Amino acid sequence: MFAPVAHRQLVLFPAPARDLERGRIFGFPAPPDPVMGAFLDAFVLDYAEKHGWSLTATKIVRRGLAVALGLQDTPGAPLRATDILELQQVGTNTLRLLEVCDAAGLLEDDREPAVDKWFSAAIAGLPEQMRHELGRWYVVMTHGSMTPPRSKPRSEQTIRLYLRWSLPALNAWAAAGHTTLREISTDDVREVLPGSGNPRATMGQGLRCLFRVLKAHRVIFFNPIGSIRTGTHETRQPMPLPASALREAINSTDPARAAVTAIVAFQGLRSGQVRKLQLTDIHDGRLHVDQRVIPLAQPVRDRLAAWLAYREKRWPKTTNPHLFISRRTALDYSPVGIAWINTSMGMTVQEIREDRILHELHANGGDIRRLCDMFGLSIPGAARYSAILTHPDLRNH
């Protein structure tokens, strides 16, 4: 086991971005710490064997690792993620290199989170004081608050949505000459709010979150949207898919497409459930998911068997425990992304799930309790489907 040094070599002045093309031509310096170099090289070989990497993939990572070590300012220190990402210029697979260094405990992740960059860019055109106030809101939303009023961190997606919904109002107030959110009155809010529908509801939800957090933490002293009704989101009516589209996907010659579509179409799983399915979740003809045991229909069993045979032939050395894997995830332990699932099927998981729920609804005559038990729906969620039981498109489907 290698123990990295605890110090960092200071530099006299920050150097400009390295021109690695010159190193490609004339060669890179050798790693200044041979002990660290030998440790990481042996670690890469062992890691590659365990994860079923090809000889070419292993060679690229070993070469990239040697370059990264040779360019270190502090020999023996953990490798910085930003330095590793620069190696894309010389054809190194930086994602795998980051993965290896992290697994070896020799990665210093100094990257700025993407959401931080996005937030800074989104509010860049606002007045300085307003940016400062929004920064306080962002800190509370991102990290939560351990002091009263206490709150939990919110997800990156939630933060992005609330700010996007609020930005039209913030930009309008800035254009009108306001420099701080403390100046905003109830009349100012009414002037920027759309008249009705989802635009009004979403902007209202974003501004309500913004002003509530700032008032709770005494950044502002008055919540100007507190007494204004903005309505709720208008829900979209779920409708069935064309039978021909589902039939084509389920009977596809692509094992991944047929298996994923079949398990969603017959079992009505959510995208998150499909992504997280493990090989051990399916045995004895049954699916074990979210503490439920679901018998699998024969068409699903057949397509899963075909997929597993293809999976074994295509990636015989993979150690990824997930049921569905891709060319990228076969080399690690991560699940496939939602984009891979939707692209494989040629339609979204939600569309197929809604189609399955509507079929069950039609078959059981509108039994909401059964929908809740079978698909994990809430009572209001199930009621949304039962409300269209008599829709002509559903009757004729």
Results as ranks from 00 to 15, higher is better:
253 T>W: 07
276 K>C: 11
4 P>E: 04
248 E>D: 11
394 L>V: 07
34 P>R: 03
102 D>A: 14
206 G>H: 06
352 I>V: 15
269 L>W: 02
341 I>R: 08
85 L>A: 09
347 M>V: 04
317 K>H: 14
297 A>E: 10
364 N>T: 15
60 I>L: 08
67 V>K: 07
208 R>C: 10
393 D>P: 00
251 N>L: 12
60 I>C: 03
229 R>I: 10
103 A>L: 02
194 P>I: 11
274 V>I: 13
98 L>G: 10
186 T>Y: 03
311 R>W: 11
312 E>S: 14
283 H>K: 14
22 R>A: 12
245 A>K: 15
373 D>K: 10
347 M>Q: 06
72 Q>M: 08
324 F>D: 04
47 Y>C: 01
45 L>S: 15
130 M>D: 07
224 P>L: 10
396 N>W: 08
207 L>M: 02
279 L>T: 12
102 D>Q: 14
72 Q>T: 09
181 L>S: 08
39 F>T: 07
343 T>G: 08
211 F>R: 05
397 H>M: 12
24 R>V: 12
226 G>E: 14
144 G>I: 08
279 L>K: 11
165 W>L: 05
289 V>H: 03
204 G>H: 05
141 M>Q: 14
264 V>T: 11
280 T>C: 06
299 P>F: 06
148 P>N: 01
141 M>I: 07
69 L>W: 04
328 R>K: 14
95 L>N: 11
96 R>K: 12
